[in-house]
């Protein structure tokens, strides 16, 4: 590029560009390899895997491992496949994401546009709650869920994820609303608009991007959670991750690697789909969770 228009200053020659592209391609293969392994091996019969052909394409393509993983594979004591657990995960994720995002939006609104003494401390307390090792809350939470009559149920898991999701959703909305012109809010107040009216008419309509970021983040985190699911769910309320782990690590019978791979893809598919469709927002959420400001 001629003149000062270039956005990188460092110039690279023909040879070094070749080296750079080679290295970048090698790492593309490295990152894609496990996905490739999962996909091809979920589509081949078991004996092809056992024969040392894990990296080869299937010789006899088959969808049998997929149907087995979905509806007939042995999970724990029952041969139900992963289908009921997939459903559990959806029933768990949807309400937890919706409620924690709404609460986060309201909290962010209060913490930026209705500030009061000590609000930064309150925000700091909420934020620290995102980073604690959840081992620290497992024991009392198990008791509390029992007291609330939610032990071993999907609503119990919704509650747990909701509580520990508030910190991040508040973080997203607070940082986003902090950039929002306060003058607009003040003008609306002088015109007589109340707390909720301002939220509904002025804040919410402009919250699209951050709502997407927040929903994606919460969805990915809650869908992928294992610790809470393993600690607080019963056999019939297990989320997908816990069921997948049971499927893969069950020690009885023949290890059906192809079924395991098919199950792993099923557990990965919802979050992967979100990533492919809205990757930009996913990355933005990741960054906001670490590099603030």
């Amino acid at each position: 590029m001629a003149g000062g228009a270039s956005d990188t200053v460092v110039r690279t020659g023909r040879t070094s560009r070749f080296v750079i592209y080679t290295i970048l391609t090698v790492f593309c293969i490295y990152y894609l390899l496990p996905l490739y392994v999962m996909v091809v091996n979920s589509l081949k019969p078991l004996d092809e895997i056992r024969g040392g052909g894990m990296l080869s394409l299937p010789q006899a393509w088959t969808l049998a491992p997929w149907s087995s993983a979905w509806s007939t594979a042995q999970i724990g004591v029952e041969a139900t496949g992963l289908r009921p657990y997939f459903l559990n995960s959806i029933l768990m994720v949807v309400p937890a994401v919706v409620i924690s995002t709404l609460l986060g939006a309201l909290n962010g609104y209060v913490l930026t546009k209705w500030r009061f003494r000590g609000d930064t401390i309150i925000f700091g307390l909420m934020l620290f709650g995102c980073f604690i090792p959840f081992q620290m809350v497992l024991i009392p939470m198990a008791r509390m869920l029992g007291l609330m009559g939610l032990a071993g149920t999907v609503p119990g898991l919704v509650f747990v994820h909701l509580v520990y999701g508030i910190g991040f959703s508040t973080l997203y909305f607070r940082n986003y609303y902090a950039q929002f012109p306060t003058e607009l809010v003040r003008a609306a107040m002088i015109d007589g608009a109340g707390f909720f009216k301002i939220f509904q008419r002025i804040m919410l309509p402009s919250s699209g991007p951050i709502a997407v970021v927040c929903i994606i983040w919460q969805f990915t985190n809650i869908w992928n959670d294992f610790l809470f699911g393993a600690s607080f769910a019963d056999f019939d309320s297990q989320p997908m991750t816990v069921a997948l782990n049971n499927l893969v690590s069950s020690s009885t019978g023949v290890k059906e690697y192809n079924v395991h791979f098919a199950g792993a893809i099923m557990a990965a598919l919802p979050t992967l789909l979100v990533y492919v469709v809205a990757g930009r927002f996913f990355v933005r959420g990741l960054m906001a969770g670490s590099v603030k400001g």
């Binding site: 790492f27 593309c28 990152y31 894609l32 390899l33 496990p34 996905l35 392994v37 999962m38 091996n41 894990m54 990915t220 869908w223 992928n224 294992f226 991750t241 997948l244 782990n245 893969v248 690697y257 395991h260 791979f261 199950g263 792993a264 893809i265 557990a267 990965a268 979050t271 992967l272 979100v274 990533y275 492919v276 990757g279 996913f282 990355v283 990741l286």
Partner: peptide, 21 residues
């Protein structure tokens, strides 16, 4: 996109893939 997609996966999925690989 390729470098970052593993971040969207559950560690259980990652663990399963690498365990058998």
């Amino acid at each position: 996109t390729i470098y970052l997609y593993p971040m969207a996966l559950s560690f259980i999925v990652t663990g399963t893939a690498w365990k058998w690989f």
